[in-house]
Design a protein around this nucleic acid. Structure first.
Length: 432
DNA sequence: AAAACGTGGCT
DNA sequence: TAGCCAAGTTT
């Protein structure tokens, strides 16, 4: 009785890969030699990040930093601002540090062990670069591979406890021949066939040896412990706009931690019990602060955040407080502003009303989102700066139930990153 | 070793 | 809609 060998064969996957491999900007075509710089750059960008999100950033980085040396020599802030919007900013800091180290060493280490020592390169990335760029027989275990392998072997242990076992099983599958293609093949398989929902088992080169498929349980793997959602935190953001060039008061966050080394308008502390009514005690400078209607909502990996935005127009002579700066609106693109802070600025320049209790009358289309941090194309005439004598009254809130019309028609500033709006506003029931 | 660390897209 | 997930790493 011929019992089918349950062991997946690398060769079967490679045959599939040769026909169905995806074409990606950082991937060498058959016959081409992979460029370690591109492989490394793409792998770091792809950590916890989708291909669609990475593509434009990858292109922009190669444009600005064509070589590893160029990246190593670039100012930190340029690297951070080019990365702004991609998320997980420690990656950008480590990327820069890694570039300097590798440039100084004269090139990348050509094995996983050496790569693993570099900043921002963990087990997955070291294996991926070693296999793809240096033809080493190493496994590259990412989320795709975890899914494929837990299904192949019907691993009941939930993630993350199953990781060591998954890694060992994967390493055993890596062929001596074409290990780089194998690594990319498993990921392609996971991304296009062995998907989270409704895997296309009928098209899978590894259907026969797949134990989960044999049980009809393929969609139930990998098992995982469900994570607890974080507690909502609240805070206030203070957007001070100086007359004339409409410069915005900004500061740089501490080098480490949440949004480390990124820029932001000053904000209060973010805590579960923050009271926006007392926010002015946290204002960065004395001015006529107005509390804008609406709330900026943002979701971090480990907690959701609600920010109340305060706006003030200050006089030309206003001096930025210690450690802060006024950045002209047209220069905002050079600032490493993370997504959440772009939302805050967008809200300050174009406030959205707080979501009323869903009036079921069909909601009117949201007003064409005033481009805020966008292309600078239309070089519109400078509006006469409305100077306001630098009054130094005690901070007070100007009852603001209405949007600040003075700010709503400000010129768009350039910004490289994709824009998004998730300011509290009625979720216009958009049915297609 | 558990928790921190962004953002956008899809269901 | 609210959660889940994406070519993970660091402390």
């Amino acid at each position: 009785m011929p019992t089918p060998d349950p062991r997946p064969k690398a060769a079967d996957l490679l045959v599939w890969y040769d026909r169905h491999r995806r074409v990606l900007p950082w991937r060498a075509l058959p016959g081409e030699t992979p460029d370690p710089y591109r492989v490394w750059l793409s792998e770091v960008m792809l950590q916890q990040t989708t291909i669609a999100a990475v593509k434009p950033y990858f292109a922009r980085f190669l444009e600005r930093f064509p070589t590893l040396q160029a990246l190593a020599l670039a100012p930190e802030e340029t690297v951070m601002s080019t990365w702004a919007g991609l998320g997980y900013y420690s990656r950008a800091r480590n990327l820069h540090a890694c570039a300097k180290a590798v440039a100084a060493a004269g090139g990348f280490p050509d094995d996983a062990k050496g790569l693993r020592r570099l900043p921002g390169i963990g087990a997955y990335t070291a294996g991926a670069i070693a296999a793809i760029a240096f033809d080493r027989q190493e496994a590259a275990v990412d989320g795709n591979v975890e899914r494929v392998v837990t299904r192949l072997f019907a691993i009941e242990t939930p993630l993350p406890a199953a990781r060591p076992a998954i890694r060992a099983l994967t390493q055993d599958l890596v062929p001596a021949d074409r290990p780089g293609d194998f690594a990319q093949a498993v990921m392609d398989l996971g991304a296009t066939i062995c998907t989270v929902k409704r895997p296309a088992c009928a098209l899978c080169p590894w259907m026969a040896p797949c134990q989960a498929r044999a049980l009809g349980l393929q969609e139930t793997f990998p098992r995982k412990v469900k994570k607890v959602p974080g507690v909502l935190r609240r805070g206030a953001a203070f957007v001070a706009i100086r007359g004339g060039d409409e410069a915005v008061l900004l500061r740089t966050r501490p080098a480490e931690g949440l949004l480390g080394a990124m820029a932001e308008p000053p904000t209060s502390e973010w805590t579960a019990d923050y009271d926006p009514a007392r926010a002015l005690l946290d204002a960065p400078l004395d001015a006529r602060w107005r509390r804008l209607p609406g709330i900026v909502h943002h979701g971090f990996t480990h907690f959701p955040l609600d920010l109340t935005v305060f706006l003030a127009r200050v006089g030309l002579g206003t001096v930025a407080p210690e450690g802060m700066r006024f950045t002209p609106r047209r220069d905002l693109a050079e600032e490493p502003l993370p997504g959440v802070m772009k939302k805050v600025l967008a809200h300050a320049f174009d406030p959205k009303p707080e979501a009323p209790k869903a009036p079921r009358g069909r909601p009117k289309k949201p007003p064409a989102a005033a481009p805020l941090l966008d292309e600078p194309e239309p070089p519109e005439p400078e509006p006469a700066p409305r100077l306001r004598p630098v009054p130094k009254p005690l901070p007070r809130v100007i009852a603001a139930t209405e949007p600040d019309d003075e700010t709503s028609e400000a010129p768009p500033a350039h910004n490289a990153a994709p824009r998004k709006r998730s300011v509290a506003k009625r979720p216009a029931s958009r049915k297609r």
